[in-house]
Design a protein around this nucleic acid. Structure first.
Lengths: 220, 220
DNA sequence: CTATAATGTGACCTGCTAGTCATATGACCT
DNA sequence: AGGTCATATGACTAGCAGGTCACATTATAG
């Protein structure tokens, strides 16, 4: 938490500092953010910065708490349309409200999610070519599946690619991170438990994809 | 690409260098990797490093190409069990083969995917508490849905949480990255096209989740 | 053996970082 | 007025980064 001196500041000055910090984190993430640049861009001195905060992590944690609070307020102001919703309707409503919030505070959200979720899987600058290969291969797979009659021809190919790509990456990340905790990673991957878990994940994806659109059209 | 001098090296020395680089990237990612440390850990001099490579990005690109090549070979050696597979069966087979490959070359894969996909959404060290809140909320949502009879009671709660969490993050990342390209992000988020895209994504997820396990049991 | 080319080396440069601290400013109280 | 305390400052330290370069070593050819 920031020190008391920070909260004693006139609110205008506080906001200038927060603004500079948000821009810095949005652009550079947490590790590569520079206190020097934050200080420059907010027009305070180096010494003052350390009189307000412990370090840059302290600033970030404060941002996180501010965003959390504002999001709570945002959600409370916009009660769900109907009191007795299906859980999935409720989840859908939450996602939509979240999107609205994100687009209302884009830089703030970007700063936080850049740190929490990384640079974003789909938009790394340098590796666009490399990623293009993957998405193209997936795209061809889907098109083939449509030709074979395995997938509804009205399916949005681009969307299906995003679904499959997301799951490929999520599973890969899961295997690496969870697997590194095991003493024998190969054995763990081949174990019935792990295989079943992955099968279920893929089944959820597959079952959703097989007949998306025509069902979707009916249900909406 | 590395310079010719690198390829002239005895293969043992080359592998030592590659090994050190893999470890460095796996631990620190690309931006925070240190050439000094790579040099120390591989027992070569600073000057030599720059006689072999342009810079650390050059090393990484080489790693990427090596991994790509080895993965190709790995997949070619293990032909799919049956020639005439359903596309989803094929995708499932590919994911499984990918898992096998990852667990056979864990550090190498980790190094590359740490750079391409970020630190991994689910395993960032510092924000475990923060993320726990989200997963707990989702967990309660699923349990409630089961009690209400909206979701099959045999559903694996932990798995459903992972599905919902993955999509929450994927959508959030998509909105932020794609939205920042628009001149009016709020308008873009509210547009029929964007809303429909998100609806379809959520529908794929929902339709897959609603009746996962009992169907899964039948089909496997 | 000598001459030439290729490879190896680490001290050194510049530029950045996080964080400190002696000093200066100004507000408020007696 | 003098005294006290919170706040503001930026030069400074120590450390690490990427990258260079004059020189040392080794291999190859004549």
């Amino acid at each position: 938490m920031p020190k008391q001196t920070f909260f004693n500041l006139p609110s205008e000055k506080r906001e200038t500092i927060i603004h500079a910090a948000v821009e810095e984190f949005a652009q550079y993430g947490l590790e590569n953010a520079s206190t020097n640049r934050i200080v420059e861009n907010s027009g305070i001195s180096k010494g003052s910065f350390y009189q307000y905060f412990e370090d840059k992590q302290d600033v970030f944690m404060y941002l996180l708490s501010v965003l959390e609070r504002e999001k709570m307020e945002y959600f409370q102001d916009r009660h769900p349309p109907s009191g007795n919703m299906d859980t999935f309707e409720y989840f859908r409503w939450m996602i939509k409200a979240g999107m609205e919030f994100n687009s209302a505070y884009p830089r703030m959200t970007q700063a936080v999610s850049r740190v929490l979720l990384g640079e974003g899987l789909y938009y790394g600058k340098n590796f666009a070519d490399y990623r293009a290969k993957t998405t193209q291969a997936l795209s061809m797979m889907i098109q083939q599946a449509i030709e074979r009659g395995e997938v509804d021809p009205s399916v949005d190919v681009e969307l299906a690619v995003m679904v499959m790509d997301t799951w490929t990456n999520a599973i890969s990340t899961y295997i690496l991170n969870e697997g590194m905790k095991q003493k024998d990673i190969v054995r763990w991957v081949r174990s019935a438990r792990t295989q079943e878990k992955i099968d279920k994940l893929l089944y959820v994806m597959e079952y959703g994809l097989r007949k998306t659109e025509s069902q979707f059209m009916k249900s909406s």
